[in-house]
Simulated scan of single mutants.
Amino acid sequence: MDIWRAAVSLPLHWTVSILQGKGRRLGVRPFSACPPPSHARAKMTAALFQKVALLLSFLLPDVRPTPCDLSIQPVNPIVPFGGSVTLNCTSSCANDTQLKWESSVQGGIQQADGWTSVSFDNITGWDFQPLCFRGSTQDPVRTLVYLYQFSSPEIHLASDIMAGHWHTIVCNVSHWKVSDKAPHNIDLSLSSGGRILSSSQGSSSLQYASVAKLEQDGAEISCVARLELGQEVLQKTANGTLKVYAGPHNVTVSSSVSTYKAGSSITITCHADGNPDPEFAWKLPSRDNVEFSDSNRTITVRSAQGSHNGTYRCLVQNTYGNTSAELDLLYEGASRSWVPIVVVVVLALVFLFGFGVYSLIRK
């Protein structure tokens, strides 16, 4: 096989001489006992060489060098604006020592057989694409660094939300930006108590309007912003607390009795809803022997007398309104003390009427 390899690499007349010499050594007769003319001999030699070369192209292995494949990891790293990143370039040739980096920012390089790495700090270029290469005969490989700015969402709530009135919750991301060539999308969602109130896609602002209820006071509102960047999802959350206010309402006054006798003990209670908690005051027939408790919600009349007969009015107020409710108490002693007098008067009138009628009849 060596003679055929040599035939490929040597000039034509050398190859023919070698082949002829090889033939003599092997006891093979030369091409022709009677050499043809020189021009015919040249054509025959050329044709023979072409056939030999064609045969060798199928038999001999390809001796061209195999290129070394390069790759960069991570691919399209996601880095915050002004952040840092480390890139690794590896070669499929384990002993490759010709790897180099090229970029618009200088970085710290480390290198060994078959690989090289570079670290970049304070990256601010929105089209930052470092490349790795070996020599000038092979195409370089590059990666685009996905740079981003992404501020936390903000929740805006009205300062005075009144129960029974419409109010609006606003959530927005004030600033965000990504590399122009980076695939991206931004989503927002508002939720409370695990329930989604509203959501949006492709917008950095979101609003939700509803009628406020007093039971919603103190409810936590969450706004979640999701930035899909390349193959990753960046998420940030903001929380706010709903404050719902209401004037006094559902005011009621109740008493342990509706009528009483002298010396009785009477308890009267006033109830009202509101936020902030309402304040209580009373307008009473008499304040004698009256005790106040439970932040003036309850009054107790010790040893009630006739002077305590009448209307008990509860006055309720807070920052957002005022109202009242009332209750009447009837003193039994006061109402029944007239019964004997009325009976006597009626009997007297009957007696006088009867006596008058009797007198007229006798006449």
Rank of each mutant, 00 (worst) to 15 (best):
E220I: 14
L229E: 00
S258E: 09
V251D: 01
S203Q: 08
S205P: 06
Q235W: 11
C223S: 03
L242M: 05
H249N: 02
A225G: 03
Q207N: 13
G193L: 12
D217M: 08
S200H: 05
S205Y: 10
Q207D: 13
S258C: 09
S189K: 07
G218V: 12
R226I: 08
A246Y: 00
G193E: 13
K213V: 09
E215W: 15
L242R: 02
L190S: 00
Q231L: 15
T259K: 04
R195G: 07
Y245N: 00
E228Y: 06
V233I: 14
S198C: 04
K213L: 15
S189A: 09
E228F: 05
S222A: 13
V257C: 09
R195E: 10
V253C: 03
V257P: 04
V244H: 00
G193F: 08
Q207T: 13
D217P: 02
Q201A: 14
S210V: 11
Q235G: 06
S198G: 05
Q216N: 13
K213G: 15
Y245L: 03
S254H: 03
G230Q: 08
A262H: 09
G218W: 11
A225S: 04
S222E: 15
S192I: 14
E228K: 05
A238Y: 04
Q201F: 12
L190G: 02
K261D: 08
A212G: 05
S256E: 11
A262D: 12
V211S: 09
S198N: 11
S256D: 13
A262G: 09
T237V: 14
Q201P: 07
S256C: 09
V211K: 10
Q216P: 12
S222I: 15
V253I: 07
A209P: 00
G230P: 03
A225R: 02
S203D: 10
A225M: 05
L214G: 04
S254M: 05
E220Q: 15
L197C: 07
K236C: 04
L242V: 04
K243Q: 06
